[in-house]
Amino acid sequence: MNPTLLAVVTLAAVLFCIGLVGVLIRRNALIIFMCVELMLNAANLLFVAFAWAHGGLDGQVAAFFVMVVAAAEVVVGLSIIVAVYRARRTTSVDVPDALRL
C-alpha cells in the first residue's frame, strides 16, 4: 500500500476520465482533440508514476516517446481539422455526417 502512488494513479484516472467525457460531450473538434491529448497525458502520468514505483527508468523513457508521438499526432490532426474547417467553415464534429448508416 503506497498512498502516494494511489494518489497519483487516481489523478491520472481522473484526468483520463475528464478527457474521455470531454470527447463525448464537446462538439468542437479542437477541444475534442485536446481532450484526447489530456488522455494521453494521463497515461504519461501513469508511466512516470509506475516508473517511480518500480524503480526503473523505462517508464520515464516511455513518457518521452509518447510526447513525441503526441506531437506528431497534433501535426496530422490539426492539418485535417483545418482542412475540414476550410471546407465547411465549422469545427463542429456533428456537422460532417454525410457518411452514415
Partner: peptide
Amino acid sequence: RKVQTGRVRSYAL
C-alpha cells in the same frame, strides 16, 4: 444500421 449515426461523438460513445 441506424446505430451508425454518422456522428463522431456517438461512435466514441
